[in-house]
Write a protein that binds this DNA or RNA. Sequence first.
RNA 1: GUGCCUGUAGCUUAACGGAUAGAGCGUUGGACUCCGGAUCCAAAGGCUGCGGGUUCAAUUCCCGCCAGGCACACCA
Length: 542
Amino acid sequence: MHLKSLIREKISKKYFDLFGSDPAEFTVEISPPNFGDYSTNVAMVCAKSAKTSPRKIGEKLIEAFKEDPDFEDVEMAGPGFLNFKLSKALYRNVAERYSKSVEMPKVKPQKIQFEFVSANPTGPLTVGHGRQAIIGDILSRLNSAIGNSVTREYYFNDAGRQMKMLGHSTWIRYNELYGKKMAFEEDDYVADYLVDIAKSISDKYGDEYVGIWNDEVQSFFTSYASNEIFEWIKRTLDKLHVPFDVYFSEQTLYKTGLTDEAMKILKDKGYIYEKEDSTWFAVSKIFPAEDDRVIIRKNGDPTYFFSDIAYMLDKYRRGFEKVYYIWGADHHGYIPRMMAVSKALGIPDGFFNVILHQFVTLKSGEETVRMSKRHGEFVTLEDLMDTVGVDATRYFFAMMDPDTTLVFDVDLAKSKRMDNPVYYVQYAHARISSLMKNAKEKGIEYERASLETISKDEEILVRELDEFQDVVITAVNQQKPQKLCNYAYALSEKFHSYYTDHRIVDPGNMELSKDRLKLCACVKNVLEVTLSIIGVSAPEEM
RNA sequence: GUGCCUGUAGCUUAACGGAUAGAGCGUUGGACUCCGGAUCCAAAGGCUGCGGGUUCAAUUCCCGCCAGGCACACCA
């Protein structure tokens, strides 16, 4: 059993026996050095309800644990912490388990959805999308791993104004190829990648569209360009190892009649009204401080917000218990109106969730690269991956709290030196792999080692191994992928330190060697699982 | 002006409300005739932006300031 859980259960039970009630919420954690192995604050948090002092509670618990063979020693220290020293047998059990496999904690399964990236096919993915892709991907991996049923979804607008501008811009580039200069319209896309697409059209269809602009040409250029770009986006995601289960097109909502249905529901409930020739959704009826929003424009075109309403209804109808929208921080103003939508549609609280992440800038040397999509001056996600590699790209996006702005240090990510955390962690794994190989060559079989020689320094490692489940749960609950990176780093750190102080494969002491190898195998297993969730490779050699 | 996010060592940052705020870079000084030196050990460097409050205990929770980022469209 997980050591902390074991200690926790023993405390709860003893406490109930002694005081006739359950203890208040308390913690069990790894002690600081020289305070035993694990410590709890139970005596302090229960003092008030038990109407006695922490010291008295602690003394009684210590007395009650005297005969427990799992605890070699229990002491009280500081303001009332109880510090436990665990038996060797417990440590052996834990190590034994991790040497075989790494179990994921399991939760009551839920059907959940993560919707992320969702970039419209008007241009390549940027580094900002990259951050979002990694956050979404890791949270998806985590939730699948603990037993939830996860759908990864990519939503895109394939109707509407932006698409039209994309088609028009491509057509202009196409005409340029034939020497016909035309003016871009105000919101057209001027970026260079459209030149390539125009060339490809020219290669296939020649000059048949030069100087001709009508609805048919419009729709041809729009769909040609968006298809090309979408393929490009998908290749990039593939390269980044971010798969999607569903690519959901906005048009579907209109084709299936879901938009009409959503409109009817909201109308019946009185959330829809007409004003100034437009149709409005009454956000203020739910959140008085918020402004109402237009869903059908004067010209009869629906806004994207209207699609989003129907899309939420669709998600709900599909039976998800929870949906997560992962958005860049610039979208945060969208949250209240979407929350209002979920309430207006009668969707239960807890269904609609948003995970926001702050922006990304790139740093190379002293120079900070600013993103400017508008002028076609931005670094694509693909360029970044080609420069620093997939592992570093993923790790660097994963290792920072989504709530903080991320300065992506390109030079650091590229470096194969010790200051690069990716290599530090991978190096630990490669080093252990090398040990295993070494042992194999010498014919040392360690799988069935007894672990009798386990002592203080090994226990440090075992405690760190046993943190794994907690880290996973915390990462999921707080939606913080960086917890995994921090953990992988901490475990690697403890291994490197252990390695330096102890000779693992010692021909002069076979029993010790086997025990140590077995322990290293545990570390390797946990590192592999952790890295696999981060989506970074665990190399045998580097 | 309103809302959201963030202020921790010179730099990048960690810390389910817990004990002496933990790392890396940089600086200084050390460690393999032996398993991968891409490693390890040590030193120096902190009124955790400021001021209140809650608590046995606050970097963490609450309130007010200050600073930076972002958003406030019939664009997404």
